[in-house]
Design a protein around this nucleic acid. Structure first.
Length: 227
DNA sequence: GTCCAGGGCCTAC
DNA sequence: GTAGGCCATGGA
């Protein structure tokens, strides 16, 4: 099976199994981007608490967040872990948004994907996953998001090696899919759904909708979990 | 008590 | 270019 056909098959299986996905709840693009930093290597529930604290403090605004003291910010986001690092990162990110785009997301959206991605990656604390999440979920750009779930699901099904790099995994998708943001959005959400759900609950892949993708069934059953 | 979650940075080799 | 240590909370 060639790459586009394989990716389409995976998508169809996951989509019919899980249905519509509601990934990344946020009232505004800025809130979403703040969440992308807060949830780094942290459970969403812990990040969500921090976001609620920022909402109550009326700080979900680039201008205000860039001006709040780092100490107060760290206290508000304590539940998200790494709170000192993240407080610093959030302030620098907010300052960047305010300075470069007047805090207006619409202005940011006018920048083409590639230069905007480079710009985000130049900020401290924004790596490939965080940048791609922001580009896709807050800005509607077709930038495929690779996360721990993505790697786990693909590697578990022998579609990539466990040690594959971020860029390699991203190319695996981008080279076989039309670059449409809604598609990338739902595709990633579906990978998370199956990653959270069956890949962890069922080490032997019973009931997994990806179990019979292509001719990989036997390899899937034989591939070890990490660690 | 241990493990780990919607990463990224820095350093060493 | 990559393996290892570090950052830190809260739930299972």
């Amino acid at each position: 099976m060639n790459r586009p056909a394989l990716l389409k098959d995976i998508y169809k299986r996951l989509s019919s199994f899980y249905g519509p996905q509601r990934w990344w709840p946020a009232d505004t693009p800025f809130e979403m981007m703040v969440g992308a930093i807060l949830t780094q290597n942290t459970s969403w529930s812990n990040a969500a608490r921090a976001i609620e604290n920022l909402r109550k403090a009326r700080l979900l605004d680039p201008g205000r967040l860039s001006r709040v003291s780092e100490k107060r910010l760290a206290r508000l986001i304590r539940s998200s872990g790494y709170f000192r690092q993240k407080a610093s990162r959030l302030k620098i990110f907010s300052r960047y948004l305010s300075d470069a785009y007047g805090g207006k997301i619409e202005r940011m959206k006018r920048i083409p994907l590639d230069p905007l991605r480079k710009e985000l990656l130049d900020l401290p604390g924004i790596g490939p996953e965080t940048a791609d999440s922001m580009l896709l979920y807050a800005l509607g750009k077709p930038s495929f998001v690779v996360d721990a779930y993505t790697r786990r699901v693909l590697a578990r099904h022998s579609l990539i090696p466990w040690r594959a790099s971020y860029d390699e995994i991203q190319r695996f998708f981008v080279q076989g899919l039309p670059p449409k943001a809604p598609l990338f959005n739902k595709y990633h959400a579906l990978l998370v759904a199956v990653g959270k759900d069956l890949c962890r609950k069922h080490p032997q892949c019973q009931g997994c909708p990806l179990r019979r993708v292509g001719k990989l069934r036997l390899e899937v059953l034989g591939s070890p979990l990490p660690g």
